[in-house]
Amino acid sequence: MAKSSNARMGTFAVFGVAVLVNLVLSIFLLDQVRRTRQEVSDLSRELASKQDVAMLRPLRVNEILERRCTRCHTDQRFAKLTGMGRPEILETIQRMREHPGSNIPSSEVREIQAALLVFRCIACHGEGVLSQIVLMPPEDRVRFLRDKVRMPDSGFRTDQVGELLRAFETLVDRPKN
């Protein structure tokens, strides 16, 4: 009699404790879930957008031009680039280099040429939008440039997509300073 009563007490106790511990754990778990959801919904404010990441690797077109060109030329001069492709720009740069005191090292010609070509895009799109090219895989870059070039009044010929791509890649993959 006493033995069975003890056994019953034991079973009840074990069962009861299990239920209670489960209850406490469930409450904690619910709280964890609630807090996690809260944190996730707060994330959008903290999470970096593609834009933010792209800005970490700016094209720095203006910076390049300021370093070597704007001592003599105003921004308006660059607007006259309209219609110039890679060969014309290269030719211009070579001409500038011949001026005494222009001080453009040959190592930077490639970069300046790319910056001037991309400057034509910046006239309409802004550096922020163009920076997104940083995040694109090669195929998407081509498609992106092709779409832009096809736009009416883009000022580019379709066969210049390759030039543009190389210009962007020069700027994007340029080692820092």
Binding site: R8, A13, V17
Partner: peptide, 18 residues
């Protein structure tokens, strides 16, 4: 504290035999 000190006594006290 919570299990041995409070939940187990709670379960035990709730049993009429106890």
């Amino acid at each position: 504290e919570i299990i041995v000190g409070f939940l187990v006594p709670l379960a035990l006290f709730s049993i009429p035999d106890v």
